[in-house]
Computed example of a mutant assay.
Amino acid sequence: MRKRVVLYRAVPREVLGLLQENHEVTVYEAVNESNRKAFLDTLGTAHGIMGNTLKITSDMLDAAPLLEAVSTISAGYDAFDVDALTRRGIILTNTPDEVTETTADLVFALMLACARRVVEMANWARGGAWVKSVGEPYFGVDVHGTTLGIVGLGRIGGAVARRAAHGFGMRVLYANRQANRQAEDAYGAERCTLDELLQQSDFVCTMVPLTTETHHMIGARELSLMKKSAILINASRGPVVDESALIEALSSARIRGAGLDVFEREPLPADSPLYTLPSVVALPHIGSATRATRDAMAARAAKNLIATLSGHNVPAIVNPNAWDMRTAAQANPCGSAGG
């Protein structure tokens, strides 16, 4: 039986064709107030949904009694109540591998831009201020040979560590719940406490998912532990950093600067103080924003969805307990799962 799939984001033609070969597909390029009711009505017959940027709420899940699988075109999954999906036996998959290298590239772009004041100096020159050689007031700081502290040494953190150690000769510290032996062996990464990392690092890079434990894990106290010359990089999730505390630390020169691709509220409001601080490089959440990466993410998400709806396990299942519930229900048709 061809199952029904609802897309809540436009995807490349090839990806749409792949889904249509296997399932009946309805596409919403975006969900907003004007089409929300139609979207909810369509969910009533959906076995799978796929997209990103839309928060999947309890009323959406209530409207989808047949839903078996959700495939997010992203590595992060904070738009979902994973526990609620699991209770219903709904499998959630993501695309962690496809974003790794591209996001690590962006982390280093932010580090270099902040350290060498790239955006500030480009605007300075464009504004006509470059009339003689640049003097000490406009100097930046080196990246090579310094200490990088990575908070959360997973896939992307490991890719950042590789660039740091092998490309820039940096000492790499990391704070993680578990030791990362591969990074220790390959990049000389040293595991330490978060406080030790903050106190010793020239660059602090947050690479953790957003959870109740990581919400505001970098706040006023943590910022006060950093070197005054240190630069904070956040390309994970905005609420990992207490934005108000960060603005205060930057405004008072408690730390040197910040490179940010994510924010507590997105889009970042135009009147945010972060835009007015010359020590800040603020980007519009472009960690995975290359054509090749976005296409690869969409293709992987489609393959994840097709596989899970066909009863095949995939490595990118976020909530394996839901898989166990569904397979148990299939083995025991008298029971129930999902919905």
Rank of each mutant, 00 (worst) to 15 (best):
L194T: 10
D242P: 01
L194R: 04
A186D: 08
L197V: 12
N234D: 13
L277K: 08
L225S: 01
M226G: 08
P278L: 12
P267G: 06
L210I: 02
V280I: 12
V240N: 04
D261C: 08
L194V: 12
G188A: 05
S272Y: 00
A230D: 13
A258L: 14
T214E: 09
A189R: 02
A235E: 03
Q182W: 04
L283T: 11
L250Y: 04
P269M: 10
I286Y: 09
T214F: 01
D185Q: 02
T290H: 04
A220K: 12
L198V: 04
D242R: 01
D261V: 07
M226Y: 04
R256W: 05
I218Q: 10
S236M: 04
S252F: 13
I286S: 12
L232F: 02
L210K: 02
R221F: 08
P239K: 03
D271F: 10
S244G: 15
L246V: 04
R171S: 14
L268A: 12
V172G: 10
A249M: 11
T206F: 02
A289C: 07
S252G: 07
A245V: 07
K228Q: 14
S272R: 02
A183F: 06
G238L: 12
R237S: 05
E213K: 12
T206N: 01
A270R: 14
M226W: 06
S244Y: 09
L198S: 09
L274K: 14
A249Y: 02
T212K: 15
N234V: 04
E248V: 15
R171W: 01
R237V: 01
T214W: 01
L198W: 11
E266F: 04
A175S: 14
G188I: 07
E264G: 14
T206G: 00
A183M: 09
G188Y: 05
G287R: 06
G169Q: 06
P267Y: 10
Y275I: 03
D242Q: 01
S229L: 03
R254K: 11
T276I: 06
A258P: 15
S272W: 00
M226N: 07
D185A: 11
G219F: 12
Y187V: 06
D242K: 02
L274S: 15
S252T: 15
S251Y: 07
L197Q: 03
F168P: 10
L260W: 07
P267E: 11
S229I: 10
R237P: 03
A270W: 03
L173S: 11
P273Y: 03
P273Q: 03
A270G: 07
S236T: 01
A189V: 03
